[in-house]
Amino acid sequence: MEQRLANTWRMSVNEKKFIETALLADLRVDGRRPFDYRRLTIKFGRQVLEDGSSEVQLGQTHVMGFVTSQLVQPYRDRPNEGSLSIYTEFSPMADPSFEAGRPGEFAVELGRIIDRGLRESRAVDTESLCVLAGKLVWSIRVDLHILDNGGNLVDAANVAALASLLTFRRPECTLGGENGQEVIVHPPEVKEPLPLIIHHLPVAVTFAFFGDGNIVVIDPTQNEEAVMGGRMTATLNTNGDVCAVQKAGGEGVIMQCLRIASVKATDIRSKINSAVEAHNMEKALRKIKRH
């Protein structure tokens, strides 16, 4: 029992009270205003994990996204569609309360929110992943590793997923052989790998509610998450459509939140796009040098 007590992350009463009283005066303990987002940095794999890997830092929070692909048999009911699946990995290094191996309640929720935002809004074109109808399709797997928990894992993980999907390249494959039914997967040296077709970028923005729901802050830190009364994650895409909303407890002004979210989502999206562009540019430049 004692070991378990020693492993849980805990907060003093002083901290909780102070966070609440400071919020009454529109102050947050890290010096931000209620609707300020933390600094977001996106980095991409350089060496071995060349394509489809990204590292996102949102303040203290640190998430790594990693995309892989595999040729599989499609589902019976969708013979000409590839699949996209999201897996989360919560390392005990990120937070002592995360258990190794078994995914916790929050790990499942996080995976579901991101899954709903990306897959059910059809952001990734799955039909273009079909190689041979009914026989072979590409299955895209997104792994999200939580490396450090500083609060608001959902937004950080969502950005990591998007950034790694945007830079991911799958090997090109063609049909050949005697009967034209044999699939040939071309290595990247022979044929340039193909990017995924992504229709729009659903960006998640999380709000935390305090008190009677009249205090709303964006992008809560780990300490604020421990104190908050409720939380809402809105996932908005490029056109301003709401792709998903996840609201866990608490009362709050949803419409106002959505309006703020759409502004923040635009900011985040432009950050992702510029990071991806810079990465692509760098890759192109490196290619020139090699020859």
């Binding site: 102070f18 400071a22 303990v29 010096g31």
Partner: peptide, 12 residues
């Protein structure tokens, strides 16, 4: 300045 702002400033 109210006291929370001083505390936050010192802390940061």
């Amino acid at each position: 300045a109210a006291s929370p702002s001083t505390v936050i400033l010192v802390g940061n």
